[in-house]
């Protein structure tokens, strides 16, 4: 091998190794930080892991919201109209949070099967349903027909 080719080979090897390491680290970081989505039915059937960050979504059950009188702690039930999961959260709920609204909560399941949420998301359009929630509802065959759809085709 002449010196020029040798130099090129070194450069190519360097690039390949560098890219390999970078891709490896990236995928590792990615794997550490993905949050899987579970529907209330899946959680109730024990498919969701405890102690890792997950996302869960469903409709907030009417009349289930309970507030503490001392602090910002709040708890409520979410459902896919099949099974129900209890969610506990401390903090300010989003503007569009209300009973009957589709929400997504992010947090960890505790040993009682209650989702300890660190974040509650409700989207900024009252007819909008998070796609995950919509699919979960559809799977359970409980997709409601939202009212007032004529303005949101």
């Amino acid at each position: 091998m002449n010196p020029k080719r040798k130099q090129r080979l070194l450069i190519v090897l360097f690039i390949v190794v560098g890219v390999g390491v970078a891709v490896g680290l990236t995928l590792f970081a990615l794997n550490q930080n993905i949050n899987l989505f579970y529907s209330p039915s899946q959680i109730a059937e024990g498919e969701a892991p405890q102690g890792t960050r997950i996302r869960a979504g469903g409709m907030v059950v009417d009349g289930s919201v309970q507030r503490s009188t001392e602090s910002l702690a709040v708890s409520f039930d979410i459902t896919d109209y099949d099974k129900v999961v209890r969610v506990e959260y401390t903090g300010i709920l989003p503007d569009l949070f209300r009973e009957g609204q589709g929400i997504v909560a992010q947090g960890e399941l505790d040993s009682r099967g209650v989702l300890q949420a660190v974040e509650v998301l409700a989207k900024h359009d009252e007819n909008y349903m998070p796609p995950e929630v919509a699919e979960a509802l559809e799977k359970a065959g409980k997709m409601p027909k939202p009212a007032g759809q004529e303005f949101n085709k």
Partner: peptide, 26 residues
């Protein structure tokens, strides 16, 4: 990080989201 959840969803491997720690870490 943006397309991975879409890809996983398209392959029916589940619904995931990639959190900010991934982006911050890189």
């Amino acid at each position: 990080g943006t397309l991975y959840p879409l890809l996983v969803d398209a392959l029916n491997l589940g619904k995931i989201s990639v959190g900010p720690p991934y982006f911050n870490a890189l």
